[in-house]
Amino acid sequence: MKTWLVTGGAGFIGGNFVLDAVARGIRVVNLDALTYAGNRNTLAALDEHPGHVFVHGDIGDRPLVASLLQAHQPCAVVNFAAESHVDRSIDGPAAFVQTNVVGTLSLLEATRDHWRGLQGAAREQFRFLHVSTDEVYGSLGDTGKFTEQSPYAPNSPYSASKAASDHLVRAFHHTYGLPVLTTNCSNNYGPFQFPEKLIPLVIARALAGEALPIYGDGRNVRDWLYVGDHCTAINAVLERGRVGETYNVGGDAEMQNIDVVQAICALLDARRPRADGASRTSQITYVADRPGHDRRYAIDASKLKRELGWQPSHDFEQGIAATVDWYLQHQEWVQGVLDGSYRLERIGAAA
């Protein structure tokens, strides 16, 4: 049985990845600090599962990481651990540097030292996969897409911290020979996403009868990627990707923010109509734009498709319907994460 050390595996993307990996017979050692967006309830299906070992801890705790590597001898480390919300990085950038830069450096050092001690096939087959974002590339105009050769031009404290971590991963490969892989993905959506992000936030506020805030003119464009498709892409890169390479992961689903919100409203109107019969689009309101708000992201994932044969299996219409249905069916999960530290309010409004 393969063993993977997955960091940040109680978060949104990491949690979905862990659930899928264990279901496929992979043993996962799951290291998560359980900050506000980490949620053990996401992993409830794995309670008492012999293929899942949960460890509450920080990637910056180098002795802990070293002990896990020694005790469990994973054949791969998959790093999801990160502070990930742009608005929060505006309010408090230091936490993003601490986790995404300093924490990633500590994880890399522990992993490098462990890998150096491996022999034969274990050393040859070992991989360190770093999960990153398309936001490191900055903002696009009306045309074009990000490729793996796009220059880094981060515009928020979050994307700057992820850019730094990407550079560290690259450096550990070229300096020390560590067998690394990096993925840069577009905006994810799907089950178990913390409700500060656009799609789950709109669902939660719409159901509560609250205003649906749209930043600026609502025409900022994102390339939306269903989280399950992201997980299959990571698996493909981990199993068949070329060491030292970066692979962009996108959903081929460019959408303006206002169109995303209107699609959610239409689905909720059909599935859970308002008592007064009005459309939830009447709850849409425009608010001051996010400071430094990137205008457009779009991913060219042709390298991943060409080299590894990956394709997204969900278009946006399918993915958003499945996502709305999941949140309607799992309101107890949503209420469980809406504690006193976050109540659907706006954050990151002031530069």
Score class of each variant (00 low, 15 high):
Ala82Ile: 06
Leu308Pro: 06
Tyr226Pro: 05
Pro273Gly: 02
Asp87Phe: 02
His314Lys: 05
Val18Met: 06
Val102Phe: 05
Ala95Cys: 07
Ile26Tyr: 06
Leu308Cys: 08
Leu129Val: 06
Arg205Lys: 15
Gln125Asp: 02
Ala37Glu: 02
Lys2Glu: 01
Leu328Lys: 13
Lys197Pro: 00
Ala266Lys: 14
Gly14Thr: 12
Met255Ile: 09
Ser313Thr: 14
Val136Glu: 03
Arg40Ala: 08
Thr183Met: 08
Gln331Val: 10
Thr183Asn: 07
Trp310Lys: 09
Glu239Cys: 15
Gly14Lys: 04
Ser282His: 08
Tyr297Met: 08
Ala71Leu: 07
Gly209Cys: 11
Leu308Ile: 13
Val324Pro: 03
Asn41Cys: 09
His85Ile: 13
Pro273Trp: 02
Ile90Met: 02
Leu238Tyr: 15
Gln331His: 11
Ile264Lys: 13
His173Ser: 00
Gly38Trp: 04
Arg343Glu: 09
Gly14Ala: 08
Val334Ala: 15
Ala204Ile: 07
Leu168Asn: 04
Val55Ile: 10
Thr104Val: 09
Ala288Lys: 11
Leu105Phe: 03
Leu198Cys: 03
Arg27Glu: 01
Gln98Tyr: 03
Val169Gly: 12
His114Asp: 01
Gly250Lys: 15
Trp326Phe: 13
Asp166Glu: 13
Ala322Arg: 12
Ser186Ala: 15
Ala76Trp: 12
Asn16Ile: 08
Thr232Pro: 03
Arg295Gly: 09
Pro93Gln: 00
Met1Arg: 09
Gly292Glu: 13
Val287Phe: 01
Pro291Ala: 13
Arg88Thr: 05
Ala321Cys: 06
Phe96Thr: 09
His49Gln: 14
Ser161Met: 02
Tyr152Arg: 14
Tyr189Thr: 07
Arg295Met: 11
Cys265Arg: 06
Gly38Tyr: 00
Pro93Asp: 04
Pro213Asp: 07
Phe126Gly: 01
Phe17Cys: 00
Glu254Gly: 06
His56Val: 02
Ser150Trp: 10
Glu317Ala: 12
Asp142Met: 11
Arg296Thr: 10
Ala208Leu: 07
Glu124Trp: 00
Arg116Thr: 05
Leu344Ile: 09
Ala266Trp: 12
His114Gly: 02
Arg290Phe: 06
Gly244Ser: 09
Asp315Arg: 00
Ser302Ile: 03
Val6Cys: 04
Val243Tyr: 10
Asn220Ser: 05
Tyr176Gly: 01
Ala82Thr: 08
Ala164Ile: 15
Gly277Tyr: 11
Leu5Glu: 07
Gln329Val: 08
Arg274Asn: 05
Asp113Thr: 11
Val261Met: 08
Asp325Arg: 09
Leu344Gln: 12
Asn248Thr: 14
Ala350Cys: 11
Gln73Lys: 15
Pro179Ala: 15
Ala233Thr: 13
Ser139Leu: 10
Val261Glu: 00
Leu68Lys: 03
Tyr286Ser: 08
Ala81Val: 03
Gly218Glu: 12
Thr246Glu: 12
Gln331Glu: 12
Val86Cys: 04
His330Gln: 06
